[in-house]
Design a protein around this nucleic acid. Structure first.
Lengths: 355, 355
DNA sequence: CTGAAAGCGCTTACAG
DNA sequence: CTGAAAGCGCTTACAG
């Protein structure tokens, strides 16, 4: 049976270098208190033998705990989206428990910036070894990331990113590209000439940068290729009141009698689906985002043609994993982990649900 | 910072039961040589405290190795498909190296049944602790699975399955459902009446059960719903000769002047794409399987509309992981791990590639 | 600056 | 049937 190589240990290194294992450990972890000369000697040998310390033994011997702070929206806020990254985070946390990873969650409300600031401050007060953050409020999140950079606390961002580069890793989706993909799907399914509605249902407070990017991606697709000569119409509806939404949609339909498809730039697509069902407009192609519990039944009933999935569970899982790799395994972590843009239909939904 | 609970160790158990740690270890692992009475006593305490042995420490202390046999097609056979599961397998293997997992690969040729038999026999001779197998040849694979069941060697299947239930886990895709999905995509993109071609490019020797299931799924979609009244035409082409394939396709096009789309039931879809390109039939929707190096450029050039991805890398990764969970972590393993049926287009290709 | 020793939580001969 | 002890590979005070 294969294995990369005969296992070589810290003891072997010590012997070869003519020093004690304690000294070897000191140079491996740069803990100082070693003369330059012996340091070089040990370095050389570890490199020649390509020595890799046993992480299991290391975790076992070390009583040191590493503490993760997790700053993200509460799962029981508006919409059910945030429970999924939470599940992924918990799954990852459970797996690495034995490595001495402790954590604390700091949950804020996406509709209240003050709760973000509050929780962020709490997190910083606890002096974690690393921070995992969903930067829902750009400006404030950027400040936190800067502060962490100063304090040498590695930050992993997920779901959305921020512009400055104080984080070690971003886990999420390319919003522009997902819009582009939605454009392709809309185009592919539109046989005849007609209007395409782009609906943005915004809650004002929410970070809308990636909502905007999705829309731009969608528009961009048709800038390059619009053989069917579809007319794109933007519709922005503020607030979450169903009455207002229906009113606006009704108006759009009366103004544009040949609407062929609707692209909704976020997970509130189910509201448009319900409108279409109520108004018996079943021929309209509807594309939106996220496998939420509101959206899934609409997909199953064919009221929604496609949902774009951003694998929220996987995002949470990978964010924890990235920080774990950095802090515990001391592995290199990529600057960006781009999650696939899944196209979900009635026919392949169940596999993404289970996953 | 949170943690499930204060860590409770084998030593605590021993103390509470008034026995030595050695004895506790014996009952935990059912190694016998313990009186019924003390066994019960220890059992009770471990259960009450919900004691979970530390897998890291366990792996470290145990010099026992666990040996995986991996029986699968060689990556450098026809087509490039098999290198992906191999990559996933290697990735998983690397991660669990420290747990004392040894392995040996037994590679056969998908076009030569004898190599399968040969390699399978070799694997069995080596008496592995577990087997990971791609059961490309049903009958022979079934026999191997039976033999393993007799010998209490757990078997994990991936990519395709077999009917008898001698394996502990199957990792793969639901072929019928993927065909159904292809049907939906074809239907969604077909505006007008016309013909849809279902092309099966078969190498005779290859296991074609799941090829068939894909086709049946595709047909099934239109049985339930064929509003556009598309005519489905089956085309089976044996052998892999490009000339013969082109000839058959040309014939199909001359017999059916209004072909709107083609569904190719396996990864050889690029051959049809090249045909369409050569014949300048760019309006035909083309759907097929797998992100192989031949298919990807066709997708990028829009010669293929959709590729269905079966995440071969992930399949390999998860197959190894399932066996690891069973054999090393002693965790429960699901009977079936169904991999998502990814829809890949030019626009989201790159995320599936990196992944 | 360096080494010897104890210990992390579990496993494994060995002795009784 | 049971316990005491050594050891897995690494880390961490402690003494010098």
């Amino acid at each position: 049976m294969e294995r990369s190589d005969k296992k070589i240990t810290i003891k072997d290194i010590a012997q070869l270098a003519g020093v004690s294992v304690g000294t070897v450990d000191r140079v491996i972890h740069n803990r100082g208190e070693v003369s330059e000369k012996t340091k070089q000697k040990v370095r050389k040998i570890t490199e020649m033998l390509n020595f890799q310390p046993d992480v299991l033994a290391s975790a076992l011997a070390s009583k040191k705990n590493v503490r993760f702070a997790i700053l993200m929206p509460s799962a029981n806020g508006e919409g059910t989206f945030w429970k999924y990254p939470m599940l992924g985070i918990d799954k990852a946390l459970l797996e690495i428990e034995h490595y001495g990873v402790l954590y604390k969650k700091y949950l804020f409300s996406v509709s209240d910036k003050n709760t973000f600031i509050e929780q962020a401050e709490k997190a910083m007060m606890d002096h974690p070894d690393g921070l995992i953050m969903a930067p829902s409020f750009k400006k404030e999140a950027t400040e936190i990331a800067e502060l962490c950079a100063q304090r040498k606390i590695p930050v992993v961002l997920f779901n959305s990113s921020i512009d400055n580069q104080d984080h070690i890793c971003y886990v999420g989706q390319d919003a522009f590209q997902s819009g582009l993909l939605a454009g392709k799907l809309m185009d592919y399914g539109s046989s005849e000439n007609g209007e395409i509605l782009i609906v943005s249902l915004m809650s004002l407070l929410q970070n809308n940068q990636y909502i905007l990017a999705r829309k731009q991606g969608f528009l961009h697709y048709f800038e390059n290729k619009n053989e069917r000569n579809l007319r794109l119409i933007s519709l922005e509806i503020d607030g979450l009141d169903v009455g207002a939404i229906y009113h606006e949609l009704r108006k759009a339909f009366s103004e544009n009698p040949t609407i062929k498809g609707i692209f909704v730039t976020n997970s509130r697509v189910f509201q448009v689906a319900r409108f279409l069902e109520a108004e018996k407009k079943t021929k309209v192609n509807l594309i939106g985002y996220d496998l939420t519990s509101e959206n899934k039944p609409c997909l199953e009933k064919n009221m929604i043609s496609f949902l774009i999935n951003q694998q929220p569970l996987e995002q949470g899982y990978r964010a924890v994993n990235a920080l774990f790799n950095k802090l515990v395994l001391k592995k290199e972590v990529p600057k960006e982990i781009l999650i696939p843009i899944d196209i979900v239909t009635k026919e392949n939904l169940k596999y993404y649900e289970e996953y």
